[in-house]
Simulated scan of single mutants.
Amino acid sequence: MDEITDSAGARLRWTKEPPSLLLEGPWTAAGVKADALIEAATRALEVLPAGPVRLEAAPGAELDTVGALVLEHLAHAAEDHGRALDFSALPPAWRATLSLIDRVAQRTPPPEPEPFSGFAYIGKVAIGLVHHYLDLVAFIGEVTAHLLPVLVRPWRIRWREVIVELEAAGVRAVPIVALLSFLIGVVLAYQAGVTLDRFGANVFIADMIGIVVLREMGPMITAIVVAGRTGSSYAAQLGSMRVTQEIDALRSLALPPVEMLVIPRFVALAIALPLLTTLANAAGLFGGMVVATGGFGLDWTVGLQRLGRLGHAHYWVGLVKTPVFATAIALIGCQAGMSVRGSALEVGRATTSSVVQSIFWVIVLDAIFSIVFRRLGL
């Protein structure tokens, strides 16, 4: 073995059998002279036999990112001479530092992009949807397994957290739900009044408003607002807890996250949504009556009498949907948050996904209810 150079502490030795370069001393920012080492390594590569040259680290040798960058330059110099350096004999810590420098220098070419295929894209989307809904079904089963024992023993429910979530999902949503429902009633009354006024049937505006608001618009608008407001907050809260490993900490303390985090939110939303729907119904009817009396000459007394003759069936038909809507929103939002893996970017994606899915399933469930009620003659 012959010594090639001494570079302020960093030394490079070589041997012919097998062809190898031995790195000695501190290959650090304070211990290397890059030009001298690269020039000496180039001379050694000309002398060594053909084939790959193995790099070895002597005991006590050190490496930092500066030394790793010098080794990258040695590798480039070897490639220019048609040679290759073998880094496999270096210690694992050295190879990790070299891989970091390799990524920064982008010495490894990026993979070729896959050619776009419509069928392959459809297949990936379909498989992703299947996996997603299988996870959702598994999550529903887990929630059910924890919820049934709690319903038998309701004192195990964390009622303090339920009240906190009820205030966040219900009380704070009152202004936006009331305002939107009032405006929906205004729009419905105006659109219906324009048509009915042509035939002198203004008295039926109240009937139309009552049926549409109580059966459809009140429950659905409330559920959509809650899905965008509360469902997204569930996904964001639980997703952030996944990222910060708070849920893992609960599991390490033998506390089931579903019972501690999901069930209080589920119970709170199941209580809040019917109450908000009742408020939305009242606001929608009031908005419609304001337009009917102020814009189309309908008397308040006559309008209230027409609403009273509708009966309670329309109200209960709309209200019976709300627990199902609340269940869908709570399960989708909580499952999206609990399935977060990785960074804050995943939290944002889960939040967006929960809102889209919640609104989609609210509309689908509302359509199913309409078909069922029509079949039942309600």
Rank of each mutant, 00 (worst) to 15 (best):
P115C: 05
V152F: 03
G25V: 07
V174H: 01
A272Y: 10
R251V: 08
L331W: 11
R198Y: 06
D64K: 11
A145G: 03
G295Q: 07
P91M: 00
L55V: 05
T277W: 07
L166M: 11
L136W: 09
F286S: 05
L100F: 12
T15I: 08
A78H: 07
P26T: 09
A168L: 12
V125S: 03
R265Y: 08
A201Y: 02
V164F: 12
L214Q: 14
L331A: 12
Y190P: 07
G67I: 04
V267S: 03
R172K: 15
Y121Q: 01
R11Y: 05
H73I: 11
R54M: 04
P154V: 06
H81A: 15
E142S: 09
V66Q: 09
I263A: 02
V317Y: 10
G51F: 04
Y234K: 02
E246D: 11
L183D: 12
R54E: 00
A344E: 12
R156Y: 01
Q237K: 14
F373D: 01
S99W: 06
A283D: 12
M1G: 13
V164E: 13
L48S: 07
L365F: 14
G303F: 04
V225M: 11
V290Q: 05
E3H: 06
V70Y: 00
I359G: 12
V356N: 13
I329G: 15
T322R: 03
A96R: 13
F266Y: 15
L298S: 05
L100E: 12
T301L: 10
A34K: 15
A29C: 04
I127M: 08
L98I: 15
R107P: 01
A57I: 00
P52T: 03
L45S: 05
A189S: 15
W14A: 14
F119T: 03
R160N: 03
V356T: 13
L275M: 09
G31E: 03
E114T: 04
I359H: 01
W94E: 06
V162P: 11
L71K: 11
V137C: 03
R306T: 03
R103Q: 13
S252P: 06
